[in-house]
Design a protein around this nucleic acid. Sequence first.
RNA 1: GCGCGAGUGGCGGAAUUGGCAGACGCACCGGAUUUAGGUUCCGGCGGGGUAACUCGUGGGGGUUCAAGUCCCUCCUCGCGCACCA
Length: 870
Amino acid sequence: MSSRYNARTVEPKWQKIWEERGDFRTATDNAAAGKPKYYVLEMFPYPSGRIHMGHVRNYTIGDAIARYRRARGYNVLHPMGWDAFGMPAENAAMEKGVHPKGWTYDNIAAMRAQLKSIGLAIDWSREFATCDPDYYGQEQALFLDMLEAGLVTRKKSMVNWDPVDNTVLANEQVIEGRGWRSGAVVERRELTQWFFKISEFSDELLEGLDTLTHWPEKVRLMQKNWIGRSEGARVFFPVEGVPGGKDYRLEIFTTRPDTLFGASFCALSPHHPLTEELAKDNPALQDFIRQCDRIGTSEEAIEKAEKLGFDTGLKARHPFIEGKTLPVYVANFVLMEYGTGAIFACPAHDQRDFDFAKKYNLPILPVVAPKARLGDAAWAEELVAGEDAFTGDGVAINSGFLDGLDVASAKRAAIEKLEALGLGEGTVNYRLRDWGISRQRYWGCPIPVIHCEACGTVPVPRDQLPVTLPDDVTFDQPGNPLDRHPTWKHVDCPTCGKPARRETDTFDTFVDSSWYFARFIAPDAKTPTDRALVDQWLPVDQYIGGIEHAILHLLYSRFFTRAMKRVNHVAVEEPFTGLFTQGMVNHETYRDAEGRWVSPSEITIETVDGKRVAKRLDNGAPVTIGSIEKMSKSKKNTVDPQDIIAQYGADTARWFMLSDSPPDRDVQWTDQGAEGAWRFTQRLWRLVTEKPETFGSVNAPVPASFSDAEMALRRATHQTLAAATDDFEHMRFNRAVARVYELANAISAFNGTGETAGWVRREAIEILVQIVGPMMPHLAEECWEALGHDVPLTATEWPVADKALLVEDSVTIAVQVNGKRRDELTIARDADKETVERAALALEKVEKAIDGKPVRKVIIVPGKIINIVV
RNA sequence: GCGCGAGUGGCGGAAUUGGCAGACGCACCGGAUUUAGGUUCCGGCGGGGUAACUCGUGGGGGUUCAAGUCCCUCCUCGCGCACCA
């Protein structure tokens, strides 16, 4: 009776049944549900208009977890929403003349339909978009709470300025130092902006990392380095000749006070107050600053740029060496945002200082020598003549009272001395800077403040929230449409009633994504969160998303959760108990004879003489097969999930996404892999439906005894179940898939007949279908129904492995001689070491390998290996 | 430039705390059945060697009875770098 499995009809059928049954609507009041809660969340998507394979992978992983946890008896919360503010909507408005709002909501509608076709176990009743006034209004309320709590500040910071378009550019809009549209050389410009005081949480955020034991170690390490706690010293260098500053003391931060005796110059950031003071009547310095400002604002650009300096002519007095002075430079690699915006440089022991000293012929004096080369004059010569600074541990030399101390002791001694002299102190510095949240853009959440000439910055009164975006805006010119809107920004001051001006900047979209996980718990609450409910549901038990968010999004969310706790909107400090970072989806690239990228859908591949050869489908022109890279529009190596779903069904796409690669690594999408996944869907369907008469009846009693072959299949079944369950617990879906194949092979190979065999066969196939359930839910439901069940799989509990069937009576272990495998031995599991040793030594191949030589040692690892050393 | 991670057959990968390298899948090769075909089933499949055996986890070195796994070093690729999301 078996016929082909038709995903096209089966998948919508089950999606409809699940929806009608309300299987995935979560009982909001978990306490009443009487089950443990489990909150699983994937990073919500930006509504670009179409889902891509990265989404399919992300949401399939999350869905498998959600369905597995549901089967394990948890009350699962698995919501979905849209990270809907951001630049692409404004770009579309400029390029296509569509309104960002219409464009965004149209995209959401299209992507929602696509996501639903994947068959995700999502509670769609909780869906929202961050551009819904209801959501961003609550975000404004949160901001006001944080403002009142002193967590917000205003200060000056640098932006990329396009002098032709007269607009602020994002870093990604600066290409090789030029504006992406105008092509003009970009300048740095100072702007007063809003900031969250995340730097006040540096220590807390750092220490909190230790509690995140279910996060990848690499993410914790990246965050730790990003926060960048470093112990060091503030040192004051008295500077002579500062105009109008008689006793000017230059404050610098250093992590290496032990190298002070090797100092050869001081350097100021181009935006250090002293630099700006000096530049006032120094046109050459003004030019130099302008030159530095052309590098752009990204740290990457600044660090990669050639090191340049400007000698101010000022001299700084060395704190330890009487009479010694150091030249004071302005240098392009000194960041105003880090430390004090000024450094002292010890070229011998810092690579950047070293490069700079070489370029400007400044002295390089080694003051730390590696232990092994202490007192070796040649070492110092090599260092100075070479290209690399010595940054390792060693012993202080040429350093007066520090001589002979190791680096750590020398640091302590130097700080003590500085403190005694009143020329410095030990201090802790962090790399983490405050979070600038002002964006000079339209499509974002308006910052709810009003600027009044008399009253200063005044919060928008709560009863006037949300401050909504005006719809009547134009995108025919660059710049912020809110700022040039004829009426929107003109309001009366809420305090004094005089004419005032709305803040026209909007929030960084990272603000929107820093608390959405809390909003899903009560998406309609009239306050940002519903405390009774968030206390039940937070933190998120398992969060899943791309590794590219390892630092910013996750750090901002951690900060925001702490800030929300301070203003009593949540009880927890950490938002995500478990974090899983999935890899990317890659695909081969193709180019035609002219080097233009060609899409996979435009070509066909054949194997000629064992080699894969590609050509265009339309005209047969040859196409070169290139490297495997991350799917991207620019390289045209994308595969549209909708095409795959239309051709093979969602289950095939899901299965492929989970089957081959470990989820935290990159996966390569291949047509053959997709076909292989599709073939397995057909195979499972055949296994279930081909010979229904060979299965026992549903709910038949357990037979009294089993044959050896029947026991073997039962063992395979329960061992697979135990192992696959463990794999699900650890998100090792690729291993679970491999075990599914093994069990399927065992079921196919089992040829027992009769009632008992039928019972065993049914047990095996049912467990197989249940394991497949979280991964290919539609197919599994259809199989489950075909096996005679009335209750859908989504409402069926996860099976439990019979522990008695997990252990074998005998084990096969390898026998090595001098570490090389010579034979194997099958022996009772509980055999003692002597028995094992005697049996191993008696093996013919082992005897031959020993070759009469004396046995020195026999290593027996029970159940694993025997190694005979001769 | 700085920080982080990853390298195992033709390909994706598997391998408890160091304990039989290559499970499982894809591709490929051979056979059977059938069809108009990509279907299905059976067998083979890291390199060298007739074989005994031997070499093999990015390169080089080390620790160990035993190393894909631990240590040192080098190379390649990927991610992040604060206004992309």
